[in-house]
Amino acid sequence: MSTKIDLFLNVFIDKGGYLKVLEGLRNTLVIAVLGLLIGVVIGTLIATVRVVPKYKRLPRVLNGFATFYVGFFRGTPMVVQLLLFYYVLLPILGVRLSGVTVSIWVFGLNSGAYISEIMRGGIQSVDPGQMEAGRAVGLSFATTMRMIVIPQAVKNILPTMGNEFIALIKETSVVSFVGASDLYVAFNYIGSNTYEFMVPYIVMAVIYIVMVVMITILIRLMERRFARSDR
């Protein structure tokens, strides 16, 4: 075992393997964080479309689109979406983007679909009296949504959003399919340099666990901050 560790450390430190790991770590975090942000924006918009009263035409059309969107992104695996974007959509559009950029967008679009469902549940869990009170003082539906309902919905769904973020972090392990280097690519590089995969993969697992634990703690802290208005 100790020779295995020596081999690993040799490549990790002396041959600059740690640089690859850092790059992978950065990519993993960048894809997950930006993906989540895009997802929150898209998810909130879609959730709003879903709860808007439907007696006008525009909301109905938007709702139809939202149903299709959510159906597509929840109905296909992330890898398939990445491949479709990178190898089908981009060539058709004639656009060149890096694997990381594509991953950020696909993760954002994908998590937008999941977050819209979470957010819809969150919005529906807010007392309808809150919307009524906002409308009764003359605020528009959109303004009341933004200032009153969504902040309360977000508070309700914070734990679930934390799970979504953790899921995103873990799922970044598929971005190597479109040529983005993440933690898997980094540790695979170290492993193939030494023909020894045991230590690299254990370290990789530990890094993932540490990230997830840290995020879990962060979410606890945020929840506590949000809980002020319950006192």
Partner: peptide, 21 residues
């Protein structure tokens, strides 16, 4: 209607204060 509601206040049975404010 939003403009008119500014001139016609409403008080509810269950108060409906904004919980996040």
């Amino acid at each position: 209607i939003n403009r008119h509601r500014q001139n016609m206040g409403m008080v509810f049975q269950h108060f409906n204060l904004f919980n996040n404010k």
